[in-house]
Design a protein around this nucleic acid. Structure first.
Lengths: 385, 385
DNA sequence: CAACTGTTAAAGAGTTTGCCAATCAAGGGG
DNA sequence: CCCCTTGATTGGCAAACTCTTTAACAGTTG
């Protein structure tokens, strides 16, 4: 239901934007390739490429020989035309204090720098801490500040874009009103803030088992909490106040009792469930799941299946992805157990899978999201020129 | 991100399509109005209107006098350029047998005919029954068959567009494979099939309390079953197999028992809940809710609140609309009770409301959906010409 | 020689700018 | 009270402009 009207100028910008979109997607195209992809004529493609090269967005990346005729020029986006940065703030780092992981990538997505540091947010202001991390990262990679077009933050909480505040977050200072606008002002770039589980889902969509899915729901089983991300053909559903997927609060009281899903399958609940068998207090929920077998595994799978079934009942996704440290620890064993538990419970047809991302999914997803935002900003720049 | 490329032909069709979109939205515009709305120049608007009137899509609906200068021509879409039909198949009619309600409206949305009939699907084939109803409706309204561009069906079940079958449906014959393609072939038009609850949500979006909402979830409390429709800024979420919103299957077992949401708040459960107080077997669940008060009302509200809280936990909608016969029977009294129950249970911020549609919401929604489909078809026609 | 790349010139399609005739309402003078 | 002038607006027309395409061509490589 779009209803734009336009003139020739619109055509020019549309065609330039279309060509750039193809070069971003992942590029390395000759004029003939672009002609095929855009259905534009040779002179037009030449003109578009001339303008894009002049603007510094596109460069000749090589020559394609081997066929008869002159060697065709291979065009690609200029990797250094723009950069995207990502910052993941984690609730508990290895040492117990919140840790910050950041990365920087160029326009083609190649990671140019990565930094990890333990920040004590109780002592240091988030504003200075986060800008500091980013400044170091930029300097080490030798990237000028104004080339970073977008910084994407991932936080262990939900972000409400209307009030521009981070909510349901345990890290001190991160929930402060005004922090996000201050960050944007200090960094002098577009910034984005999103829930860590949502970002993990973005990574899953781009590099994981969600790649070919029409849509999927990602159930995050963390050490402390639960989360759910809802991917609809590549766009995430965030809810009115960014609170979609806070399924820890899902009520399970049939009559009177006040239990919710968090009490059933969050880390502490799993520890308690396994409590009889081990008196060693140093085990994490992930350890419990990794070592579980027999009745304990069945019970855990049954509980997870309740959450999965609830999600399927509401959303009917093509695919449900189990992710987060607990799902990773459980791996294929847990997956089969959950599948079996679901089959026992209800005839549901959604596929279940375990995440295919070994690395820091949140950081990767934040990079992907930041890069997409940079792409969109560049395309919008062209359209409004 | 769209990436179309194009030339002058695209421009022409885009501008025609933009003008038509404004005339459909609800029309009655002068050339000057269109110039303002589309930012096109006077000669272009004239040219576009010439083409649209020649195609019979647009007519001069009047003259705007009262201002200095010549009276401006007021343009509007030709109401008779195309028609949309809607058919709602209900599980239980007044007499117990499934009933069929159908309506026909012109391009401006004015209802031109309406028919209601009790069809015994056990005896009659759905194909002939439904095409027969539509044929009568067309004849009575004096509308030629080829002017009906879209027929929208509403069914008490979920529709899987991939297999083109209706599922989770109790009406005999309606779940048969091949029925939907056969209907399309027999009617020789585009047809659409959708869940009745989804269609009620469309009506709520267009005419009810969802009009100004960014997005809402509609919880349907029917005599027999439950349903949920998820509206995201005007588009409905249907799920992988059209099964999104089948929340009757939402599990509520905390340990071992197999209860789900259907067992908690569907009609039969409410009847059972009120069973002690009345031995009269003729009361419907809606009657129970209408007369409920005191502890019974509180208990019912508590149960409904569980469903609402589950929906909010997953989706975080701006608004939750309670609809369906039971919600209508409960009205404001039930609404206050559910609000109070939710406040007791959890600090959730979504608004709750009761449907504002007194008429047959499903039929109205089906008409709205059909009309929108006709609009889109006409716009697409223009774009591909 | 055949196939391919990329450029140049001419033509085509669509929109905009600027201009003009026609039309109607309002107000003032006869 | 009637008529005429003034002002504002509508809609059409022609010329100019922008962008794309078609077609022809020069040049290069296997």
């Amino acid at each position: 239901m779009t209803r734009p009207a336009g003139s020739s100028r619109l055509l020019r910008t549309m065609n330039a934007s279309a060509a750039l979109a193809h070069l971003l997607d992942p590029g390395m195209l000759t004029r003939a390739d672009l002609r095929r992809l855009t259905a534009l004529s040779t002179p037009t493609i030449s003109e578009v490429l001339r303008r894009l090269t002049e603007a510094g967005l596109v460069v000749v990346a090589g020559h394609d020989s081997g066929r008869p005729g002159p060697s065709a020029e291979i065009y690609n986006v200029n990797p250094e035309a723009a950069y995207a940065a990502a910052v993941s703030v984690r609730d508990v780092g290895p040492g117990g204090a919140p840790s910050v992981v950041a990365a920087l990538c160029d326009l083609t997505g190649r990671v140019r720098g990565r930094a990890e540091s333990a920040v004590d947010f109780a002592a240091e202001d988030p504003l200075t801490a986060l800008t500091g991390v980013l400044e170091n990262l930029r300097d080490e990679a030798g990237v000028p500040a104004d080339r970073v077009r977008h910084v994407q933050f991932g936080v262990p909480g939900s972000y409400d874009p209307r009030t521009e505040t981070i909510r349901h977050v345990d890290v001190p200072g991160l929930g402060r009103t005004g922090l996000v606008p201050e960050l944007a002002a200090a960094l002098k770039t577009e910034i984005g803030v999103d829930n860590d589980v949502n970002l993990a889902a973005i990574a899953e969509r781009r590099r994981g088992v969600g790649r070919d899915a029409e849509g999927f729901a990602l159930l995050w089983l963390g050490e402390d909490g639960l989360g759910l991300a809802i991917d609809l053909a590549g766009t995430l559903m965030r809810g009115a106040r960014g609170g979609a997927g806070e399924i820890g609060y899902m009520p399970l009281h049939t009559n009177g009792d006040r239990r919710d899903l968090h009490d059933l399958i969050a880390g502490p609940a799993l520890l308690e469930l396994a409590g009889d068998e081990n008196t060693n207090g140093n085990r994490t929920p992930a350890d419990v799941v990794r070592d579980a077998g027999g009745d304990l595994l069945t019970e855990i799978a049954d509980r997870i299946a309740v959450g999965v079934a609830a999600v399927i009942a509401v959303l009917d996704p093509h695919l449900v992805v189990l992710a987060g440290p607990i799902a990773q620890a459980g791996g294929g064993t847990l997956l089969s157990a959950v599948r079996a538990a679901l089959r026992r419970a209800a005839p549901l047809e959604s596929e279940i899978a375990v995440t295919a991302i070994d690395d820091d999914a949140v950081l990767l997803g934040a990079l992907d999201a930041g890069l997409t935002a940079v792409h969109n900003a560049l395309l919008a720049d062209i359209r409004n020129s």
